[in-house]
Design a protein around this nucleic acid. Structure first.
Lengths: 337, 337
DNA sequence: TTGTAGGCGTTATCAC
DNA sequence: GTGATAACGCCTACAA
């Protein structure tokens, strides 16, 4: 009857083994057990061994909750991304983990599996278990705010409207402009773009169009095509783009993943890269280097992005006002453009 | 890595805001605050709002430790891998996270950054914060056992000598044999191998040699070369191998990463794949598909590997004896062999 | 509807 | 060296 528990269906419904259980078995007080477990000095070696034996026998494991309660200071942050497997994220995750470990913090990772609907729920459940959150998500600020309910949150790849959020954003504009100028400098005058309008981020297209205009290029409406953000999207996108505008000599893709798909499509059509079509990506994924020729791209230091987010978290945890950190990109000329 | 704890250090050394502080400000008992915070029914709407306001004003955040203490059931597992960025791991991590989320568990991820020395420390520090551990590591069992001190541990890519460990291991033998037979069926008689002896895993070489013999092939001593487990290793390895044995028509690489390096070396030497040299990898990384021709490989379901590890954890947490789960591989003929 | 005990498992403080 | 006793912050009774 004393059984509440309800953990997950242990048949024995075994109550947790506590310090006191060990104490009883060893014939000492729970305090002495604590001393033995934590290797405190003031204890008789014989007692110590006896206690440790009892603990082992009972399979005693200290409760992290009780410990955390008494001895605060352990910081855990939650990191939520849309897809752990997307090659964009591993480096970012690594950056977060690394920066966290340097501070003695731990990182709980969650993934929405590319399902926007799951963002609030994950935010809420993780938020209850950590001291702060870092999130690379897509729902609008007010939805996120409602979900985190006061847990410090740093959003990535966007600027926060909500002043309570910290943010690490990417300076897309400069990178894209540099990319366009690079294409122009290689003699391209007819440049297309494979865009991902669903990404709720028109910054790349805006910068692309703006710089193209600045360079005196004309970008026809049908030289920009919108696809889903994936390799498959890029593949289909290029095929369609090429059908509509076979005169394009260069294509800027929303990101490397999309560019990879386009790359494949170009090859499938029997065209040469960069001879017939030059390809420019965005993100600087290292796997772009595997191609032959390797993918030219607007590089982004994803690891650093993670570190910057952790730094933001630290400031927020210290009570400072959350801010906005901008991350620059860098044109990485490899071979495809 | 270094000592943790001791982060905070706000100048005011602000004591934590508790339920009681909120209660005082709102002029109610801490119990009433608890009701308001947890959305319990029995509370006057007006009181509720007043309390919530006070909470917000004080920036109150419930303590996850105190909650965990009173309301047990939250399971957190730690996952330690040697390198988050190694393309082998993201899928495995995704598998673990996914399986964990299905059970309502959380996953704390740690990385040793490919430094064997850090394994014990990470195991120990993470071990203290979680209910169980999953680890893809290289230190021998006794070292791991000393580090985890009784925390349930599931090791991956190895079988446990220590009966206290759960394990998820890969059936390397069958996969490699199938791979060798495949090469033979394509007419190859002179097959080399780029091995990674430092990986403390001779299973691949053993299986390779054994099946080669079974197929009536002779593998000369200089047809097997040992390199470091990386793309660079594979690249240097193939160059050296080719210099010593230009007659080899096929090469089996320790894993896809190494194969990728070899792939690059083959190309650099002006040889055709698979015409001049066929390449066979191991792991089945999805990025092998990006190459042209794509990399033929012995595929391993890394996601499933993660799921199986979580399943093992669940059994161990339920008090069952830890076991060994074997994971089969599958020959994935793509194009390079 | 609200407030008052009591306890969750641990560590710290102080007696003995 | 060892053992009571009191926190830590929260929640679940139960009483008012």
């Amino acid at each position: 009857m004393g059984d509440k528990q309800q953990d997950n269906a242990g048949p024995g419904a075994a109550r947790r083994v506590t310090l006191r259980d060990v104490a009883q078995l060893a014939g000492v007080s729970h305090q002495t057990v604590s001393r033995a477990i934590n290797d405190k000095g003031e204890i008789d070696p014989a007692t110590r061994r006896r206690v440790l034996d009892a603990a082992r026998q009972l399979r005693y494991r200290p409760s992290r909750f009780a410990r955390g309660l008494v001895r605060p200071g352990a910081t855990t942050i939650g990191l939520i991304v849309s897809d752990v497997v997307n090659p964009f994220f591993p480096e970012l995750i690594a950056g977060v983990i690394e920066a966290a470990e340097q501070r003695g913090w731990q990182v709980v990772v969650g993934s929405t599996q590319d399902d926007l609907e799951r963002e609030p729920a994950l935010l809420r459940s993780l938020g209850g278990q950590v001291d702060a959150l870092i999130a690379y998500l897509f729902q609008p600020d007010d939805v996120l705010a409602a979900a985190v309910e006061g847990v410090p949150l740093v959003v990535m790849n966007r600027r926060a409207q909500d002043p309570a959020f910290g943010a690490v954003d990417i300076d897309v504009d400069r990178g894209v402009r540099a990319g366009v100028r690079h294409l122009v400098s290689r003699g391209h005058r007819l440049i297309g773009m494979i865009d991902c309008p669903d990404a709720c981020d028109s910054a790349r297209r805006d910068a692309f169009l703006s710089e193209a205009a600045a360079q005196g290029l004309t970008v026809a409406a049908d030289a920009i095509i919108g696809v889903e953000q994936s390799m498959a999207g890029g593949e289909a996108g290029f095929a369609e783009l090429h059908a509509a505008r076979p005169d394009l000599t260069a294509v800027f893709a929303f990101n490397d993943l999309v560019a990879l798909g386009a790359y494949r499509a170009v090859r499938r059509l029997g065209l040469a890269i960069p001879g017939d079509v030059a390809l420019l990506g965005f993100d600087g994924l290292s796997l772009g280097e595997l191609l032959d020729p390797p993918l030219t791209t607007i590089y982004l230091d994803k690891r650093r992005m993670g570190e910057l987010a952790v730094a933001q978290v630290q400031r927020m945890l210290a009570g400072e006002q959350p801010g906005l950190t901008m991350l620059e990109t860098e044109l990485l000329v490899r071979g495809s453009a």
